[in-house]
Structure formats: structure tokens, C-alpha cells
Amino acid sequence: MQKKISSYPFNGTAEQEQKLDAVIAANKHDKSRLMAVMQEAQEIYGYLPVEVQRRIADGMDVPLEKVFGVSTFYAQFSLSPKGKNNISVCLGTACYVKGSGALFDKISEKLGIGADECTPDGKFSLTACRCIGACGLAPVLTVNEEVYGRLKPEDIDGILAKYSE
């Protein structure tokens, strides 16, 4: 799958930039820590737009294309901002056999967005994730950090309602 590159305008703050610079300064002695820097950058900004990747590339002294290549290789890295509420549906085996595919489709239909997309109002984004290890609760999804388990498609409306005030 090709990663979606965000067209949202970048609006990083000076405070975020300061944090990122501190992360880079702490890691620049070792280029192999590139991924760790990218992970922290994503924590700071929520995603890795070109402005952030360029800063990392310059700071770590690696080609920008390398940073981008890494960012498009790993599922965790996102090139578009996440919604205020990120819904992540587990499509691991255990959840899949218990019908998590239908959960995903239901949400996708309700929100009108596909995987790795964000609703125009910025409220929700949707991702499909691999096993989060809560197989005992299959099928599960998470909204932000909150885990919802043993779900049926009927439960979706209630969950969405809870977050869309």
C-alpha cells in the first residue's frame, strides 16, 4: 500500500520544534538511532510531514530520501495527521475470524473514510491494525488508548456517538 502523503498545511509550533531539536541533539551521535528520532518526532507532531522529516534529515545528517524511505516502510509512521479520535480496528487473525472485518467496514461506511484517512472535520481517523494482543476480547478496536472488546457491528454507533460530541 502506498502511504498517503498529507496535503494539510503544516502548523508546527516553536515549542514542538524545540522538542524535536532536543531529541535530535540527544541522538545525532549515532545515525542508527534514526528510527528512534522519527518515533519521538511522531509523538511530538502526531505525524511526519516533510518539514519534520527535513529537520530530522539535516539534524541526523542522513539524506531526506532515506528518512522518507524509512517512514514509508514501517506501518507505525504516518504522513498524514491523525484525527482527534483515532479508531484502530484489529484485523489480526483472532479478531478477523470473529468478524472484525465487518466492524471496520461499518465504521468506514459511517464515517465515509477509508484506512489511514481522517474525516474532513478532523474528528476521526481510521486505521486497521495488527494484533494488539487482546485476542481474548476479540474482536477489538481501540479509540485513542481506550480498548473496546467483544464487539458486534451494532455496537459501532454507540462508540462513535460517544466521541462525536
Binding site: M1, Q2, Q53, E65, K66, F68, G69, F73
Partner: peptide
Amino acid sequence: YVAVIGPNDRGIDTSIGTAFK
């Protein structure tokens, strides 16, 4: 040294290209 092209994405969609395509 310039390394302006490299592999992006993965799997069947892997392509050689520039940063942010």
C-alpha cells in the same frame, strides 16, 4: 553521495523515487 532516489513504500507498491515523491 547525493542519494536523492531510494526505495519508498513496501511490498508490491515499492517504488524508486524521491522523498515525498
